[in-house]
Design a protein around this nucleic acid. Structure first.
Lengths: 351, 351
DNA sequence: TCTCAAGATGCAAGCGCTTACATTCTTGCC
DNA sequence: GGCAAGAATGTAAGCGCTTGCATCTTGAGA
């Protein structure tokens, strides 16, 4: 993977070399140990000494060398996040909150995205570990067990997010995708819909999608409806594909009266296509989403969806992961509450 | 050596300690130097030796220790990006492309966001440098000169993005905010609008905003209009604030016929509020944005805006930054092309 | 068979920092 | 004033890897 770095000579030598601990020590006339302590555990150093050291630090513009710190102390204050993509607003938001919280606690965030390719994901996880990440944030539980073993061998605490599933053993901060979707579908059924169809993202390697599908079926079953009749279209996660799938579903003879989308992006795609095709939402067909991204409130009509507390999730994830790293916690499984947001895209079926 | 691993009484669960170069060397019966070379410059090692080494690497599941590599080799294959926020789709997109390109070239991305606070930004820049980032990506040119000096002292190549401005000395990959905005406003004027107003983000510490404002004025002037009459409202960068500002502008006695927004987010906020207030766009007032995020095409009516090639910008930025790091380039100033997208939110003023 | 360059490999000196342990200096107290 | 317990500081051993330089092979040419 690594391109060999060409050992090209750097343009110029720095005029003033970067100061090291030793330079500071010399200027303050103390040992490097004292400087290190002044910086990391000030209470263990005499007051005037510390002050002298700090002045030297200031004067030299000293910044500790991170790699050296990591090597010597065996912790990096770095946390890695390996995401499917940063492009989807839900991840962007969650990460923003995650990063803010990390920053406040003195950690730095290393991110990478694997575009839903499990091989790339694995590679990126290994890279993060090799880089000395103190902990990792992953999305969803579904991955090869060898990866979890690897993580355990290397003693890297890992938190799974975006999912809460009590059946899974790994620490997590998430929400119940299945139940949330079931709640939403219950509302759809309550409106009188009996002919449902679904548009979802690729369910391979994606337990969130699978859970949501299960949730739909749970709800159908709970209301005495036949789950096998639920037509499910799997498609890439973008607006255009959502539109295509919508069109495909609506051109069948047995048209659904409500289309449940696996997330808001697909739903927005469906609604846009509906408008282009002159299909009225919710008059001709109702559409629902999942996530409650900004877009959901802005489209016309506003989208019925499941509100997920992305920011809170990011924040909590940061907190719990750090606890895990510090050994303050053993395991956690935080289940955040989602709420169904009924908006105008959901109506009653034409009788 | 290995015995050391369990020396301290830590809650150590690792069954098999993490293998080091030395372990590999021992198993392959060669020196650590040879192992290192097998990994980093294979051509300098005999074929069978290399093969033996690779087998040992495989068998032990060896992954090089990053911090040690950085210390010894003085390069980290890490690039830092310091952004205003990841929440705005424009940065999320650009970063996605940036990160993908970096990944392909064997680099890793360290990100942080400073929420438009220059002090936090400075802190984060220093952190990145201390962490051994080989290069940095910053947004916009506007920051204290001491920061650039610091970066230069530490010999950290830095690329400025989101801006192209030939007056600025730093390498950059961006676009001409001023001219782009001027082009857009020219279209607005061409539609017959004479009473314009603007809603923009906070212009302090943000040269993109300032450039865009200049662009508006350029265009007014070019068409013989009075620039001083352009009312400009400064507001935080979110949908709600965009709406508030819109309402404020429309409730004045001297109502504008077109409102130029500094970006799409503000424009969408304005349009949403317009709908709530029963003000027709573009019937009663035209609205324009900037960036052409997904949202722009989805709102109703679709938003007239300036299309910025965010992904290309991210990709190019990654490429140029790496060239800079490798010393293949001295300086660059890439000016990407933007295009005005005329959509239904722009109409002619009521006569 | 001998020579010697080129190629392959090994040796060992760091890189800048943390920290266990050793040493020295202060105190408080009798 | 003397002494022991702490507090303050110093000493130095690594952390795991890269790389300049030294050493050893090898094989072609003489």
């Amino acid at each position: 993977m690594l391109e060999n770095a060409k050992a090209v000579g750097k343009p110029l030598k720095t005029i003033r070399p970067i100061p090291t601990l030793e330079d500071v020590a010399e200027m303050a006339a103390v040992s490097t140990a004292t400087v290190s302590r002044s910086l990391n555990s000030p209470e263990r150093v005499g007051e005037k000494t510390r002050k002298r050291v700090m002045e030297a630090v200031e004067k030299l513009g000293y910044t500790p060398n991170f790699a050296a710190q990591v090597m010597a102390a065996k912790r990096s204050f770095t946390i890695g996040a390996v995401l499917p993509t940063m492009e989807n607003a839900i991840f962007a938001r969650g990460m923003q909150a995650f990063q803010e919280e990390l920053y406040h606690r003195g950690y730095v965030l290393l991110v990478s995205s694997f575009l839903y390719d499990p091989d790339i994901e694995e590679d990126q996880i290994r890279t993060m570990v090799a880089r000395g990440a103190d902990g990792l944030l992953l999305i969803g539980h579904d991955r090869d067990p060898s990866i979890y073993k690897y993580l355990q061998n290397h003693n890297v605490p890992t938190l799974v997010s975006w999912m809460y599933n009590e059946a899974e053993p790994h620490p997590s901060v998430g929400f119940d995708n299945r139940k949330s979707m079931a709640n939403l579908v219950a509302e759809v059924i309550a409106k009188g819909h009996r002919k449902l169809a679904a548009i979802v993202g690729n369910k391979q390697h994606n337990d969130r999608v699978r859970q949501r599908i299960l949730g739909m079926k749970d709800s159908l079953r709970a209301h005495g409806l036949d789950t096998s009749s639920l037509e499910i279209v799997e498609t890439p996660n973008d607006i255009e594909s959502g539109g295509d799938s919508f069109e495909a579903l609506m051109s069948k003879s047995h048209q659904p009266t409500a289309i449940i989308c696996g997330n808001d992006v697909l739903a927005v795609g469906a609604m846009r296509r509906a408008r282009q095709l002159n299909i009225d939402v919710p008059g001709d067909v109702s559409v629902t989403g999942f996530d409650d991204i900004e877009l959901a409130k802005i489209v016309d009509p506003p989208l019925t969806t499941v509100h997920v507390p992305h920011q809170e999730m990011g924040r909590r994830a940061a907190g719990e992961l750090i606890s895990l790293i510090k050994g303050e916690t053993d395991a956690v499984a935080v289940n955040l509450k989602t709420t169904v947001k009924i908006r105008a895209s959901l109506g009653s079926p034409k009788s």
